[in-house]
Amino acid sequence: MYGWIWRHLPGNVWVRALLSLLLVLLVVFLLFQYVFPWAEPLLPFNDVTVDEGRAGR
C-alpha cells in the first residue's frame, strides 16, 4: 500500500517525502478531529468498577 502511494506521488524524492509527511499529518488530524470523538462513546474505557470489599481494610 505504501509503495503504491509513493509511486503515485508527483515530484522527486524530496517532494514525495514532503507530500507523504503532509498526508500523514492530514490523517492524524482527521483521526483526532472526527474518528476518535465519534468512537469514544462506543469504547468501554470509562466503565471502571472498583471492588469495595477490600477498600476499607
Score class of each variant (00 low, 15 high):
residue 41 P to L: 06
residue 31 L to M: 13
residue 14 W to N: 03
residue 5 I to Y: 01
residue 41 P to R: 06
residue 18 L to Y: 14
residue 12 N to F: 11
residue 28 V to M: 12
residue 26 L to Q: 11
residue 55 A to Y: 04
residue 3 G to V: 01
residue 29 F to K: 06
residue 42 L to E: 03
residue 47 D to I: 05
residue 43 L to K: 11
residue 28 V to E: 13
residue 29 F to E: 03
residue 55 A to L: 14
residue 4 W to T: 13
residue 54 R to A: 00
residue 8 H to W: 11
residue 3 G to L: 10
residue 5 I to M: 09
residue 54 R to G: 00
residue 17 A to Y: 06
residue 57 R to G: 12
residue 49 T to D: 02
residue 1 M to I: 02
residue 51 D to H: 04
residue 6 W to V: 08
residue 44 P to F: 03
residue 56 G to D: 05
residue 11 G to L: 03
residue 44 P to Q: 02
residue 57 R to C: 10
residue 5 I to C: 06
residue 25 L to I: 04
residue 5 I to W: 00
residue 15 V to C: 06
residue 27 V to K: 11
residue 19 L to N: 02
residue 54 R to P: 00
residue 15 V to E: 15
residue 39 A to C: 08
residue 27 V to L: 15
residue 35 V to N: 03
residue 34 Y to R: 12
residue 31 L to R: 07
residue 33 Q to K: 15
residue 18 L to D: 12
residue 45 F to Y: 14
residue 36 F to W: 13
residue 7 R to A: 09
residue 46 N to F: 05
residue 43 L to P: 01
residue 9 L to K: 07
residue 1 M to Y: 09
residue 49 T to Q: 08
residue 40 E to S: 08
residue 26 L to R: 12
residue 55 A to C: 00
residue 21 L to F: 09
residue 12 N to Q: 05
residue 18 L to S: 08
residue 42 L to Q: 10
residue 45 F to K: 07
residue 5 I to Q: 00
residue 6 W to H: 10
residue 9 L to M: 03
residue 31 L to W: 13
residue 36 F to S: 09
residue 46 N to G: 06
residue 16 R to F: 02
residue 30 L to S: 14
residue 25 L to A: 15
residue 23 L to M: 13
residue 33 Q to P: 01
residue 1 M to W: 04
residue 18 L to W: 15
residue 36 F to H: 12
residue 28 V to S: 11
residue 23 L to H: 04
residue 42 L to W: 11
residue 31 L to C: 12
residue 51 D to P: 02
residue 13 V to M: 12
residue 19 L to R: 05
residue 52 E to A: 03
residue 37 P to N: 07
residue 51 D to G: 01
residue 34 Y to K: 15
residue 14 W to P: 00
residue 12 N to W: 05
residue 33 Q to A: 15
residue 50 V to M: 08
residue 21 L to G: 12
residue 51 D to Y: 06
residue 15 V to T: 15
residue 29 F to H: 03
residue 11 G to S: 03
residue 17 A to T: 15
residue 2 Y to K: 12
residue 1 M to H: 07
